[in-house]
Design a binder for these strands. Sequence first.
DNA 1: CGGAGATAGTTTAGGCTTAAAATATCGATC
DNA 2: GATCGATATTTTAAGCCTAAACTATCTCCG
Lengths: 167, 167
Amino acid sequence: MESSGILDAETKVHETPGAHKDELRLWLRLLTCTTLIEGEVRRRLRERFDVTLPRFDLMAQLDRAEEGMTLGELSRRMMVTNGNVTGLAERLVAEGLVARRQSASDRRSHMVRLTDKGRRQFRKMAEEHESWIADLFSGLSQKDVESLLTLLGKAKASTRKSMVAAE
Amino acid sequence: MESSGILDAETKVHETPGAHKDELRLWLRLLTCTTLIEGEVRRRLRERFDVTLPRFDLMAQLDRAEEGMTLGELSRRMMVTNGNVTGLAERLVAEGLVARRQSASDRRSHMVRLTDKGRRQFRKMAEEHESWIADLFSGLSQKDVESLLTLLGKAKASTRKSMVAAE
DNA sequence: CGGAGATAGTTTAGGCTTAAAATATCGATC
DNA sequence: GATCGATATTTTAAGCCTAAACTATCTCCG
């Protein structure tokens, strides 16, 4: 069954007239890598901890902020919409992993932070998570990793610049 | 970290926590890049063509296959579940962009392919799409693009290997 | 033939995600 | 102090996505 090789999104990029075929291939490859890893992480989080990736991500943001942060800041950091964070936070509060309180100074604003239970649970998950990622990248040399960090940093800057310019 | 003692398979897997920060940073940066680009592409597809990214992706797969392909092959290539493709294809058929017919030789199997309208529409979108991607990566040199293609290819292989090994 | 297991696709239940509209509050200005 | 635009969050409607259970069909092998 496996004789025909692996199929994925970037199989057979169409031969298009134009000078930008490599950029398109790069985008597809980037997407493939991310999708592969994300799927694997999602699967392991569910199996090992019965938690979803978005919930893990939200907790990861809060773990870095002792005092917690507002829902708006959370949504900016997670790069998702406000409405999305509203729902996610709601479920995590219901599970007792996140606490929420209205800001005293600005009654529109709501702070969320990890509960003790949430922090304990997150730390445990984060430790394994880190080793999964290391494992998934274990075929790369330290130099590869550093090069990728640099180049992706450049790609990120390029993307942001192009997005602002198109505004 | 790089001790002078003997390292075996166990040692490598169970290195001290915190030894893999670069890999973790790499994963987060990869995710950020993808999320940024994906969001931008999604936004432009909606604005310019009133189409969603998943529908565009499905049509992109079909555009490469003159004869169409089965729903199963589509789901493997798109790296999404079967059920997902069922729904997506359903909506595209309803829009008249995709045609679907039962395979003669295997009655479980269903082929989908682009209609003429679907192909025309996709080609128009794909042309602009390619220029968006080129634009988003315009801050990278040709050499950067090639390096990224190589390194991400390596990352992809590493990930797949690690995923199979953990099976 | 006839069953056992594999394969193709659908359905279901639940969660994630977005864009856009709505609500509430703030801060500044008149 | 009333009003107006900005900000923080929620709500809504629609679509995306997954895992798991299910149906239908195929293939193999006795």
